[in-house]
Design a protein around this nucleic acid. Structure first.
Lengths: 236, 236
DNA sequence: CGCGCGATTGATTCGGCTCAATAACTGTGG
DNA sequence: CCACAGTTATTGAGCCGAATCAATCGCGCG
């Protein structure tokens, strides 16, 4: 399940660090992390952690893409958010001192580093800038979650699908052809939107007919951003 | 709108403090807050702050009950959470350095203290225990929000209504007659559940017929907790 | 080339929303 | 203390969005 790769990426040279919460930490702090962290490699579709378990550290994404999801009452997975290079996951449960509230599964080949709780708390105690960054991250997450919560409660599926496409583009940006840089099954998109797979497919087909998007297999390109934004009914 | 009351409650003697994030702070810190805080009194139904504005501090509830809500696309208010004695509100926006993502309105006569940003950050810098408490609070909030998000996306209205009743009981507990200690309009309950007012009423009527609850005006008593829990389909 | 899963489309059903009409309740002023 | 006006709660009827069920279709891959 978990393979330890021979070449462990070093934080000092980690290309994702400048995008991360650790972008401003000192060299000594980097060493502290480097000396204690672990590193794991995952293939596509592997589970990094499971909802309900405890974690004893946080995971920092070196490379790859991850979905965080909860299993709903009927077994359908509800995607909560994504993580990519430079993002961290697992911090919520660790900081709340609670069980993990979501599971994490890779969407492609992914390398993550594991930073133990003790090291993280050491750093937080010493480095208020880092702490402030974490406070900001958590606070921002809450804002996102409550926004989506409101959408789920009040917006029709069509608007939510449009909004999720915009969110995907924001999160993963586009390749040189304009396709969103992530491959998700229709079922996974449905899992973000909180709807049946068939409904998602129908609405994506409509969007194609209306020339708001193009698709090529799992790849999606937004071809009429203003109109799609209008359909999404976003007003902030 | 806002009335400054002559008698400002002192943190040192504040009955809510031991329930709050500030339960373990030192006497000097209490003084620091006391010397800089403001205090406001609100009648029922008054707005403390509005979504989209900025805040320059946090609000600590001395007495009373508050609903935090977002205005949905069609104007319907989606209740995000409640705050009562000892709870703080407004911290998300302050810590994220973003606009307020929700509005706050009193459900009854309420007294709140206002702690300026500078004082809060001063305390956070000095007192890691306090900071850890805030980290924990934020992390817990995220867990709650994502749980509700999943419910909204996946559970039918009937289950959500049942679950919200359980949540209300948890949050506000019951009086000596067994009624939940908060008065909400049907519209407000609908705003929690994310449904039409009529649907909420219908389901509450069913629950009454099935002897799961009793009502007396706006007051609600859960009379069959196990069965209501079953209907709510909660599994954690 | 055929197998099998994911994607797609169609038909049908149903939960929940909207609209509309009463009923009950709250506060207000006479 | 009562009558009145304005909410808020309740119930009913009809409609619509979205879920479910049921076939195909099509692509990726051995």
């Amino acid at each position: 399940m978990i393979n330890n790769k021979p070449e462990i990426p070093h934080c000092a040279t980690c290309g994702s660090r400048h995008k991360s919460i650790f972008c401003n930490i000192s060299n000594e702090e980097i060493d502290e992390i480097d000396n204690s962290k672990g590193c794991h490699f995952y293939n596509k579709g592997q589970v990094i952690f499971k909802e309900g378990h405890y974690t004893n550290g946080i995971y920092c994404v070196n490379k790859g893409k991850i979905k965080l999801y909860k299993d709903g009452p009927d077994g359908k997975e509800q995607i909560i958010r994504f993580a990519k290079e430079g993002d961290i996951i697992g911090y919520r449960a660790l900081l709340a001192d609670e069980k993990l509230s979501a599971s994490a599964k890779t969407l492609e080949e992914t390398t993550v580093c594991f930073i133990p709780k003790s090291v993280l708390f050491d750093l937080l105690k010493k480095d208020f800038d880092l702490t402030q960054g974490v406070l900001k991250l958590l606070s921002h997450d809450i804002g996102e979650a409550t926004k989506i919560l409101t959408d789920m409660a009040q917006k029709p599926v069509r608007e939510r699908v449009a909004e999720m496409l915009l969110l995907l583009k924001e999160t993963f940006s586009t390749d040189d052809e304009g396709f969103i840089n992530v491959k998700l099954s229709r079922e996974e998109i449905a899992g973000m939107v909180g709807t049946a797979t068939e409904s998602t497919i129908r609405i994506l087909s409509e969007f194609k007919k209306d020339r708001l998007i193009e698709t090529s297999g799992k790849r999606i390109k937004i071809t009429n951003l203003p109109q799609l934004t209008f359909v999404a009914n976003v007003f902030d």
